[in-house]
Design a protein around this nucleic acid. Structure first.
Lengths: 145, 145, 145, 145
DNA sequence: TTTT
DNA sequence: TTTT
C-alpha cells in the first residue's frame, strides 16, 4: 500500500518531455501544498521567512501528462492521487542524491482559468491560442471532459 | 490536503531522540514499501539489482514515538497514516540537500513478534543496550492496548 | 487504518445541530463526488438517468462544524479527509437501517463565493434565518483563516 | 477524488459470483475495521455491547476477485485501497434502501494462514486441498506472487 | 529553484 | 432526498 492524496498549487508551468524510444509522454511539476497551520503559527513562520507549504514533485505519465501540460499553469489548484516513488542518482560531483516524487494516477483540475493560456504566452493551448490558421496545438481528443 | 497511507517493513530498528529543551520524543525509521509489480517485472528488476521497494523515511512525534521505539524492530510490518513534509539543509560541503519525510499521525502495528524483544539484544529498547540484569527500559504504562 | 479523502460539491446547505447536554456542535451535509467516467460513459448514464456521482454523507464535529455551517452552501466544492463510520438504527416500521457516514477530520474549502452569503437568505447562517437588521449570526472569531 | 484505504479483518469468507453474460468475476466481503479507541473507551463500549469496529462492505472485480476468493478466509487481515460507491434499491416492501460499498482497486494480503484452507473445509484452494487427482481448483496463473 |  |  502506497497511497497519496494532495491538493495544492503549481509552482510553475508543467514540463512535458517524451521518452526517447517509446515516445511516452511524461510531465512534471511541483505542487505547493499548504501546511495546516493556525493563523498565529502561519504569521510567525512568514515573519521568520520559513515556508508555509510543502513543495512536492509530481510526475504524470501517458495521455494525462499531455492534458496537464495543455491545461495547467503556474498557480492553478489541482488534486493529485498517486504513490510515493523514491530513487537516487549521482550528481556531477559524484555525490549521491536521493529523490522522492509522487507518481500520479489521477490529476483533478479544481480551477479553470478565465482563459486557458499558458502563463508564458506562446506555447498555448487554449481558447485564444495564436491566431495562425490551421495551427492546432492540441488534438481535440485531448480535451479532458 | 496532504494525506499519505503506507504499509511496509522497517529497514532497521527505530531511532528515538528527545528534543533538547522540551523533552518531546521523536522517533524515525525507514519503511520499505513494496512496489506493485508483476511477478515478471519483479524478477527482471531483481536480476538487474534494481530496488523492488520504495524507501520512505517516517517521523513520529510524542508518546507514539516511544511506543514505536519500544515495540518495533527491523523487519516488522506496519501501516502509517500521515503527511508529506519537505525541507532542506546545507551539507558539510555547503551543498543544499532536499529532504522528504512522512510525519505520521498514526502507526498501526500489523505484526507482533513471538516476543517483543528488539532485533538485537535482550528485552531492550536500544540496539546496543547493555546487558544489565533487572533493567527494564519499557514502562508498563507504555503498552499500547 | 480507516482513511478517506473526497473532493465534491454540497448537495444542500449544511445542517448544524448542537448535542443536547454537552453543547457540542455537529454539522452534516452530503457531498456529490463525481464518478471518474469517460465522456461517452457519462453521456450514456445521463441518458439513462443514472447518477454520475456518488452521494456521501459527511459529519463534522466541534468548531469546524460551525465554520462549515457558516461558510459552506449548496454547490460549493470542498475536500474532506476523514474516516468511514458505520452504524444502524430501527426505523418507524421496526426495520433495521444500516448507515455509512464519513466523520471528517479536516474540511478544506476549495471555492469561496463572490460573497459568503448562504444560498438562500441574506448574509445568514441558516436557510430560514429571519430578516432582522443588525443581526450577525457569524462571530468574527469564527473566520477560519 | 474518491479515495479510501482500510486495514481490517474479513467477517466471513468472501462470496464469489460471476456476472451472467460477461462472466466477469466479482467477490464481496465485509471488513471489520477497528475504531481507533483508547483502552478505557474500548472497554466501556464492550461493556455496553457497542461495536468497536466499523463494518464495511468491499467489492472486488476481475481477476483479483478470484484471487481473494481463493486465498482469503474469515478473520484474515487485509489492506484495501479503493473508492466509495453509493447506490439504492427497493426492498420487498417497496422501501428504498441506500447502500455504500468500497470498490477495491487493490487488495493487499497482510497475513498468510498456516495453510490456505477456506474456513469451511471443502471448497478449498490451498496446499492440502482434497486429494483428487487431476482436480485443480485454482489455475496456477492465479497465484498472486 | 517555489504557489494563493 | 441529490452537486457543477
Amino acid at each position: 500500500m502506497n497511497n497519496v492524496v494532495l491538493i495544492g498549487r503549481l509552482t510553475r508551468d508543467p514540463e512535458l518531455r517524451y521518452i526517447p524510444n517509446s515516445g511516452t509522454p511524461v510531465s512534471t511539476f511541483t505542487l505547493a501544498v499548504d501546511k495546516q497551520l493556525s493563523r498565529d503559527k502561519k504569521q510567525e513562520m512568514e515573519a521568520r521567512n520559513q515556508p508555509t507549504a510543502d513543495f512536492i514533485r509530481i510526475v504524470v505519465w501517458g495521455k494525462m501528462a499531455e492534458t496537464c501540460a495543455n491545461y495547467l499553469v503556474k498557480g492553478r489548484l489541482v488534486g493529485v492521487q498517486g504513490r510515493i516513488q523514491t530513487g537516487s542518482y549521482d550528481d556531477k560531483d559524484g555525490k549521491r542524491v536521493y529523490t522522492t516524487d509522487i507518481v500520479a494516477n489521477n490529476v483533478e483540475f479544481l480551477e479553470w482559468g478565465d482563459n486557458n493560456n499558458r502563463s508564458s504566452g506562446f506555447d498555448s493551448s487554449g481558447s485564444d491560442f495564436p491566431d495562425i490558421e490551421g495551427f492546432h496545438p492540441i488534438d481535440n481528443d485531448d480535451i479532458p471532459f
